[in-house]
Design a protein around this nucleic acid. Structure first.
Length: 289
DNA sequence: CGTTCATCCTGAGAGC
DNA sequence: TGCTCTCAGGATGAAC
């Protein structure tokens, strides 16, 4: 469940089921799940045993468990990762990569990931409790550290296509392909317009739309197109019913009725309204003073 | 330095 | 039925 709302749904589920519990045994399978933990999976499993999960936190699409003593377990779901609360006796999932058993003998937690782009690592936390390993990830749109005016300035300074900037997690984090398209549709901006060509107020509104659409999605449990995207109980979100542009090629724009178009951009699909979001006339010449 | 692209995987669905 | 092809909610390191 990859973008901010879906990851937040998972964080809340984890907070309910995992916070305050002490890890007992941790089993890691395969070489990919802990590939960012350089000493290897056995080392990671050994270091986790006995640790208490003090809190579950999130920035953008990253999750981490605060394990106290300025140590954390950083998790990323990638494209297809799931964290599932289950009975230890339940049969193994086909793509089971990690299982976390707790000292209280209650339900265990499993990391299941079909495409293996997700993973976990033991990391150090800074004074604010944020992993040093994600120091390059900007605050996300829904956290107190988000500085709207500063992000507007950074976006305005980019000559790249504005959708590319929205997806750049070092500028502002949490936005992925779905919510970028939804925010652009709401703001009536084509994603290939150069960010620097938009006025600062327009950029601010675009960011506000992105925050608002993600808040709405969160209120509906996130967006789930299929069984790969579920919360810790295996339940799907239903914001897909509210999408105006993403995945809606050929269906009428909810605002003007024009069929939504699909285009290729950055080797992935983009959805927009041809009438509400006209393509930029042409690539703007390199800026001057 | 900043920016862009190829790559890491498996599986579902379309088209033949 | 089965093959081939395309596509999928992401991030990153290497190459410009």
């Amino acid at each position: 469940m990859p973008e901010l709302p879906e990851v937040e749904v998972v964080r809340r589920g984890l907070a309910t089921h995992v916070e305050g519990r002490r890890l007992a045994s941790v089993e890691l399978r395969g070489h990919r799940v802990a590939r960012r933990h350089l000493p290897g999976p056995e080392d990671l499993a050994a270091r986790l045993a006995g640790r208490r999960v003090a809190a579950v936190r999130r920035r953008g699409k990253y999750l981490w468990w605060d394990l106290e003593d300025s140590v954390g377990l950083l998790l990323h779901l990638g494209m297809s990762g799931q964290l599932l609360v289950e009975d230890p006796a339940a049969p193994d999932e086909k793509h089971l990569h990690a299982r976390f058993g707790f000292a209280d003998d209650g339900p265990e937690l499993r990391f299941v990931d079909q495409r293996t782009f997700g993973g976990l690592a033991l990391v150090d936390l800074d004074d604010a409790g944020v992993p040093l390993a994600i120091g390059h990830i900007a605050p996300d749109l829904l956290e107190p550290a988000y500085d709207r005016a500063a992000v507007v300035r950074r976006v305005k300074a980019k000559d790249s296509a504005v959708k590319r900037v929205l997806l750049d997690q070092t500028v502002v984090s949490g936005i992925g392909n779905i919510y970028a398209d939804e925010a652009l549709w709401r703001a009536q901006v084509h994603g290939e317009r150069p960010a620097s060509a938009l006025s600062k107020p327009r950029i601010g509104l675009l960011l506000d739309h992105a925050a608002e659409v993600m808040r709405e999605a969160l209120g509906q449990g996130g967006t789930s197109f299929d069984a790969l995207y579920v919360n810790v109980n295996g339940a799907s979100g239903y914001f897909d019913r509210s999408l105006a542009a993403y995945g809606q090629a050929g269906r009428p724009c909810p605002r003007c009725g024009t069929p939504i178009r699909r285009e290729q951009f950055m080797n992935r699909s983009s959805f927009s309204c041809p009438r509400c979001q006209p393509r930029p006339r042409r690539v703007r010449a390199a800026g001057s003073a």
